[in-house]
Design a protein around this nucleic acid. Structure first.
Lengths: 256, 256
DNA sequence: GACAAACGTTCCACTATGGGAAACGATGCC
DNA sequence: GGCATCGTTTCCCATAGTGGAACGTTTGTC
């Protein structure tokens, strides 16, 4: 956190290249001039970075526009397939989606964010703004809160110090003390609940996945339409099935 | 192909960084010393590259090892979701997998390779060495041959000039003239057949997807166990259904 | 059809910057 | 206790990344 001292010793050419890559990702596809304006670097510099990126196979040039290549998908999928949590959770998620009929997510912590790594659809279709691979802040989601609650307190403080607690709906918790109370509740009952805090009309339940050292770097969550996620189903049936699945996964992680 | 003249003007720091990224991808996870040995660069250099990559969020450091972050999955999935072929093919692939019972692949050309972008499972399970996101040469696969056959002749020549035609099984076509004949056959009948040329016991049928300019940058393929892919089913039923689905996709691409 | 604006590309001189040897303390192994 | 290896930091030098300027083309406008 505090070691931005060596940020002076970072390779600036690399940082520029990544700025360009992020720009292309954001723009979808773009020309040299567009990218140059977007990243606010002279076109000569952008030109040679693009040439190197293209030669290395990370971007592709279709007629007159640049776009990211599938190299990212290749590395990303391979990264996931090597993740023990993903490997173990995959099967449990199928039965959980079958039993509950709702969408099941596997979520992994990375820095101060969580990444939605894998999903299994239930029989009830829902539409949300989250897709596989996306990175989100921790506080407005069931899966994120379940992870955040079980971090060491100093790590929680560090994350919240740098977080903005931006509201996504009127239900999003934006007050730090309220959030800390919520995390305490989550620790007591063992699972987190999202009551339309990320999207109106969507509720979810999330539970932490502990690794062999009892650390929480991942979670499982179940998301469904608010009109189905009610009463005992929300606070009893669903959490029970979720915790059962997580228990299976934790066993699988300890005894491979 | 011949413009390696400007490879002198490429940014070497970037090339080193990507060499390191590829090393981590290959090793799965590794320490500084391991990476330094693998890429044959002094550890000082690798150290600062890793620091920059980490700070930029492309790699993560777990305890004492480095590994790729999920940033690659994020960009990769987003890249795919923006691909018009993927967007249109997705639904057609579901019904095709339903109707045939076999695995359906959507494959996209990128440079001299093809990338296996998306798959839908049929009811008959098979196990192959190909997973989503993987890049392969074009010649030993139904999907790859279907793409290769419909490139401009000078592009075919250029690809074959730089390709090794490495055999994957005893059925893999390794002779250039035989392959050129095969491509001619594919152009005549409109689809490609893979007769255990990539994996023993696996057969497949592939058909090119034409874009609005009649160029082929993608294909659809159906893969199944050799004992089910026989006789009229292999040369009549399956190709017919495949070409029907491709036809739908091409219509979807032209009229969005 | 002619002009102007914007594009991608190449050239060049400057100096910022990436490179790597060496030394550092910390850790683990024989 | 000594030797080897690890990750990290420091240092100086020569490389190599930078960006202004000018290039030839293409695009769009009047």
């Amino acid at each position: 956190m505090g070691n931005d001292a060596n940020s002076q010793h970072q390779i600036k050419a690399l940082q520029k290249a990544f700025k360009i890559v992020e720009s292309i990702d954001r723009l979808g596809s773009a020309t040299l001039a567009e990218i140059s304006r977007d990243v606010e670097l002279p076109k000569t510099t952008v030109y040679r970075h693009l040439a190197t990126l293209k030669e290395s196979g990370y971007i592709a040039q279709t007629q007159d526009e640049y776009q990211l290549s599938y190299r990212f998908l290749e590395y990303g999928i391979r990264r996931r397939s090597r993740d023990p949590v993903y490997a173990v959770a995959k099967e449990s998620m199928n039965t959980l989606a079958e039993d509950t009929g709702e969408r099941v997510w596997c979520v992994v912590k990375e820095g101060p964010h969580c990444v939605y790594v894998y999903k299994v659809e239930g029989k009830y279709p829902i539409s949300t703004d989250i897709h596989i691979g996306q990175r989100r802040e921790l506080h407005p989601y069931a899966a994120g809160k379940a992870i955040l609650a079980f971090q060491p307190q100093e790590h929680i403080d560090a994350i919240l110090d740098n977080a903005d607690l931006i509201p996504r709906t009127e239900n999003t918790i934006t007050d730090r003390d309220t959030l800390l109370d919520e995390l305490e509740t989550i620790r007591e009952r063992g699972y987190a609940v999202n009551r339309e805090e990320s999207i109106k009309g969507l509720r979810g339940v999330g539970a932490p996945i502990r690794n062999e050292y009892d650390e929480v770097h991942a979670s499982l969550s179940i998301a469904g339409a608010a009109n189905r996620m009610l009463g005992d189903r929300l606070t009893q049936e669903i959490p029970e099935m979720l915790l059962g699945a997580v228990n299976d996964i934790e066993l699988g992680l300890r005894h491979p």
